[in-house]
Nucleic acid binder design. Structure first.
Lengths: 337, 337
DNA sequence: TAAGTTTACTGAACCGGATAAGTCGTGGAG
DNA sequence: CTCCACGACTTATCCGGTTCAGTAAACTTA
C-alpha cells in the first residue's frame, strides 16, 4: 500500500505540486474552489505530509526530545517522570509535535544523545531535568544553540529558560505544620544531594528549623529509591532520641519509610509522623494514607512544554515559577505522643 | 552554529558527496585511505547525518512508536509501562533507533496516531499493547502494512507477530500455592475485563479453582487503578464468608487492597493473604511486603523491541512466548487462621 | 602489449515537500 | 482600446542524503 504524496494529489486534481502545497498550507496563490477540491482529495486518499521531506526543506522536525536519567528500577515506580510526560504530551500533541524519548545512564551519555539528536535534525528542542550545580549540560546546550527548557532550578543557565516551583516555601509550610502539631524533632530524607532543587530544599529546611529553634534538624541524603529510603529511615529510627516526624523528598521513599516504621513496631502517626513530597495516588493508597506536599506535576510538564515550544518559535523567554506545592494533610501526621 | 553536512566533508576532503556517503556507510567504492580520511574529518567536525534527508531518500525513519492508552493518573504509578519502556530502549538505542511516544485517550485515537505517524513516515513500526478481542487496531495495522508487534495476547492478529507470557501457568501456580497453605476461599481482583490477557487469566483461574473444588472462586473485575482496587477489595471483605486470600492483577491494586484490609482491622497475612501480579519495587516497599508473581518486564520489552526490529527488517516472525511469571513468596501470604 | 577487468572515484537523478520566480488570462482604470 | 495589476496558477530550485550510471586510471591476463 503506497503512501500518497502531494504529487498524487496534484495528478488527481489536475494541478501542479506547488499548487497543492499552497492549498494544503493555507498559503495564498490558489482559488478557494481549487483549495477545497485539493483538500477533499487529500482527505479522501488519507494524505499525510512526509515529515522527512518537510523537515528537509527548512521546516522544523516537529519533535522534541526528553532523556530519562534514572536507574531502570526506579523509573518504573517514580510517578514523577510519567506525570511530567503526560503533561508534555497534552501540550505537544495539541500542536502535533512528537515526543522522542531515550533512557540514558549518565549526564555525559545524555549530552551525547543531545548532540546526535540535534545533529540529525531529529528534534527541535529538549526538556532537561535534574539541574545540577555547574551543570555540564548547560554549556553544551548553549554551544549547540539547541532550544531547551530546564526543570529543577533555579540555577545558572544563561539564556536557557527555566521552570521551577517554590520548594523553599513548600518545605517551610510542612515544617510549620508539624511544629504546630507539637513536633520538635523533625528529620528529612532527601533526594540526590547534587541536584539543585535538593540543595534548595535542604537550605530552606535548615533555615526554618533554625528559626524555630528545633533540635537536630537532620537531613539524611538518599537517592529517591525505596531501598535507600528504607535504610535512611532505619538509621533515623534506631536512635534513642529519634525524630517524631520525617519529611521525605519523594513519595516512593515515604512509602518505604512507612513500611520500615511499621516493621519496627512503631505506630504511624502515633510514634512517628510522615510527610511525602509529591503527592501521587501511591500516597492515598497505603495505610495510613500519607500527608503530602501536592503539586500538579502534569501542569508543571505542560508549562515546560509550552515554554519549550515558545523557545523553538524563537521567542525570548524569562524564567517561570510554577505553582508551589501545598500541604495535603492525611492520616500519617498527628501530634506526637 | 551551522550543522555540518556531507557537502562540508566532501569539500574538506576534496572528494564528491557520493564518495563521502560511501565512506561513511561502509559501502565499497572508496579506498581504505580515503575512507579513513573522510571518517576522521566527520569525527572532527562532529558530523551527524540529517535523519530527514536519510529518511527521504528511501531509507527508514529509524524510529518506532509507542502509544500509552491509560488515564494520566494511573500511568504514573503503573510500573508496567516504564518497565516496558526501559526494555525497549535498551534494545532500540543499541541499534540507534529512536522511540516516539504519545499518550492517547482511546483505541480510536490510537489508530489515528498510527495513521498519521505512518503517513508522515515518522516511524518504521509500532509496539501495540493491551490486545483486545477482535481488536480494531489489528485490521488497521494490516491494512496500512505497518510493521508491528503485539503484546498481551495470545489472540487473532494475522501476520502480526505477538509476544505474550504464560499467564495461565502463573495463576495456576499462585492458586496451587495458596491451596497448599490451606486456603479454600480465594478471590481475584482483575484488570480491565476486555483485555485478552485478563480473559486468559480469568479462564485459567476458574479452571484451576474448579479442578481443586474451591468454593466460590470469584473474580471481581476492576481497571488497574488503586481506587477501583480498593473498592473491589472492600466489596470482597465485608462479606461474612469473605475470602482468605486475594490475587490482584497488578501491584497497584494489591497495595490498595492491603491498605483496605489494614484499615478494616484485618491482619495481613493472618486474616487475609495477598498476592500481586507483576512484582515491582512497590511490592517490597510496603509492610508486609507482598508475595508477587514476578516477571522481568524490561526483558519482555526488550524481546518485543527485537521482534519489532526484525519485522521492520522484513523478517517473517512467528509468535514468541516470553518467560513465564514465577511466584516470589513474601510476608503477605500465610496459612489462614 | 592490447584487451578486459577492477578500483576509485565523479556527476546526476531522486526522495517529497516548500518556495521563489515566471507565465498567462482577466478585469479595471485611464 | 490599451496598459497594468492582480489572481491563479506552473516551473524550477532547494534541502541533504542515497544510489546508479559513467569514467579515467591502474591492474590483470593472454
Amino acid at each position: 500500500m503506497k503512501r500518497p504524496t502531494i504529487a498524487d494529489i496534484a495528478r488527481r486534481a489536475g494541478v501542479s505540486k506547488g499548487a497543492v502545497s499552497y492549498a494544503l498550507n493555507g498559503q495564498p496563490g490558489v482559488s478557494e474552489a481549487t483549495r477545497q477540491r485539493i483538500m477533499s482529495i487529500a482527505q479522501e486518499i488519507g494524505f499525510n505530509p512526509n515529515s522527512a521531506a518537510r523537515a528537509l526543506s527548512g521546516a522544523s522536525a516537529r519533535a522534541v526530545g526528553l532523556t530519562l536519567c534514572r536507574p531502570a528500577r526506579i523509573l518504573g515506580i517514580e510517578p514523577w517522570f510519567m506525570g511530567l510526560i503526560s503533561g508534555f504530551e497534552a501540550e505537544l500533541s495539541a500542536r502535533s509535535y512528537a515526543l522522542t524519548l531515550q533512557v540514558v545512564a549518565t549526564p555525559e551519555h545524555e549530552i551525547e544523545v543531545y548532540r546526535r539528536w540535534w545533529g540529525e535534525r531529529r528534534i527541535d528542542g529538549v526538556i532537561v531535568t535534574d539541574l545540577r550545580e555547574d551543570d555540564v549540560r548547560v554549556a553544551v546546550l548553549q554551544q549547540l544553540q539547541l532550544p531547551a527548557v530546564v526543570i529543577g532550578g533555579p540555577g545558572e543557565t544563561g539564556k536557557i529558560a527555566q521552570i521551577w516551583s517554590d520548594d523553599a516555601g513548600a518545605i517551610t509550610e510542612a515544617v510549620r505544620y508539624l511544629v504546630a502539631l507539637g513536633h520538635r524533632r523533625i528529620a528529612r530524607v532527601s533526594g540526590l544531594p547534587d541536584l539543585l532543587h535538593t540543595q534548595t530544599r535542604t537550605r530552606a529546611f535548615n533555615e526554618i528549623c533554625a528559626s524555630l529553634d528545633l533540635i537536630e534538624a537532620v537531613t539524611v541524603p538518599s537517592d529517591y529509591t525505596g531501598e535507600e529510603g528504607s535504610r535512611a529511615t532505619r538509621r533515623l529510627l534506631i536512635d534513642s532520641d529519634r525524630p517524631t516526624a520525617i519529611i521525605y523528598d519523594n513519595d516512593v521513599m515515604a512509602v518505604a519509610g512507612l513500611a520500615v516504621a511499621q516493621e519496627m513496631g512503631l505506630a504511624v502517626p502515633g510514634d512517628i509522623s510522615i510527610v511525602a513530597w509529591d503527592d501521587s495516588p501511591l500516597c492515598s493508597l497505603v495505610h495510613p494514607p500519607l500527608t503530602a506536599l501536592s503539586r500538579d506535576i502534569a501542569a508543571y510538564g505542560a508549562l515546560a512544554a509550552r515554554q519549550l515550544l515558545a523557545a523553538i518559535d524563537g521567542e525570548q523567554l524569562g524564567n517561570v515559577e510554577a505553582g508551589s506545592a501545598h500541604l495535603t494533610p492525611r492520616g500519617s501526621t498527628a501530634p506526637p505522643r
